[in-house]
């Protein structure tokens, strides 16, 4: 059984303006999927739909085989969730929040909670309103994982944290992953964090899934072609090359992303457009993201 399933998910906030317009993908148990997309692409909406916090207007969601609309408590018990703007009650003490979670989650692991408290240097007596941003996020992560969730949903969990705090956050997530083999769906604008954590990339663009690939396949099986300006070289003709996913016009020519290894990509572009001096190379995730997001029609 898949840990997460999204099937033809639709959601609009205003009539006629779809954020998600038929998003379909599923995640097998133990997979770690990095969710990419520009601001406003609907990443947060999708994660909230999985949490049952937002209802989709069309399509089907399953979390561990459950429908978050019909079985919200069961889903929340088996899922951990950390969001960028997640706010713990400011007037409560860390210890009180932990007590509350222990009561809500039958699978709460007090030993793990204690270990994380020590590791994160969190004081039970500290009031949430006095915590720094990084410390508050660590407290939120503790609450999200001490019940040993089977699925972890992370929505920009590291944004606003300093590099050391971000790395520590990753370390803890990886430890959990290693200990429990949980399934993770996480969105982030830090491409290096995604490269560290993810097995697979799902990129949402224009309300749909634009890319759904194994990360290493994306890194090694896709190329960026640098195509000089020449007679007969146009954006449209480049998009017509088999395997071409995105084209950006730049001052010095065109940048195209192709679903081919560099040598094949060069051959395909040079042959089909009768152009010479095309350079092709594999690219890091950050550049891939920029090219894909910026190179859509």
């Amino acid at each position: 059984m898949n840990a997460l399933e999204f099937e033809e998910i639709r959601r609009a906030y205003r009539k006629g303006v779809d954020v998600l317009n038929g998003v379909t993908f599923s995640i097998g148990p133990g997979q770690v999927v990095g969710l990419l997309g520009r601001n406003g692409a609907g990443k947060t909406t999708l994660i909230r739909i999985a949490m049952g916090m937002i209802e989709p207007q069309g399509g089907r969601v399953r979390v561990l085989g459950l429908d978050p609309r019909l079985q919200p408590v069961e889903v929340k018990r088996r899922v951990g969730y950390v969001a960028e703007d997640q706010i713990l009650p400011p007037y409560m003490k860390v210890g009180e929040i932990l007590d509350l979670h222990r009561q809500l989650f039958p699978t709460w692991d007090e030993a793990l909670a204690q270990r994380l408290l020590d590791r994160f240097e969190l004081q039970r007596e500290a009031r949430v309103s006095t915590l720094s941003k990084g410390t508050a996020r660590r407290a939120a992560l503790l609450c999200a994982i001490a019940h040993r969730p089977e699925v972890l949903l992370l929505d920009e969990p590291a944004s606003g944290l300093d590099p050391a705090a971000r790395r520590e956050f990753l370390e803890t997530s990886i430890q959990l992953l290693d200990e429990t083999g949980c399934t993770i769906l996480f969105s982030s604008h830090y491409m290096t964090d995604i490269e560290r954590m993810a097995d697979r990339i799902v990129m949402i663009h224009d309300g749909r899934v634009l890319i759904d690939r194994d990360l290493d396949e994306l890194r090694e099986g896709f190329s960026l072609a640098l195509v000089p300006r020449a007679a007969g070289v146009t954006r449209e003709r480049l998009l017509g090359v088999a395997g071409c996913l995105a084209v950006r016009e730049r001052p010095d020519g065109f940048h195209a992303i192709l679903r081919l290894e560099p040598e094949e990509a060069r051959g395909a572009v040079e042959q089909q457009l009768s152009v010479r001096d095309v350079r092709c190379q594999t690219v890091v995730l950050e550049d891939m993201f920029v090219e894909l997001a910026g190179g859509q029609s």
């Binding site: 770690v32 790395r167 990753l170 370390e171 990886i174 430890q175 992953l177 290693d178 560290r196 954590m197 993810a198 097995d199 290493d216």
Partner: peptide, 17 residues
């Protein structure tokens, strides 16, 4: 796998690969 994954802060599957 797990030692190296934790040490490098990368997914254990990557080490396995």
């Amino acid at each position: 796998h797990r030692e190296l994954a934790l040490q490098l802060v990368i997914a254990p599957l990557t080490v396995k690969k």
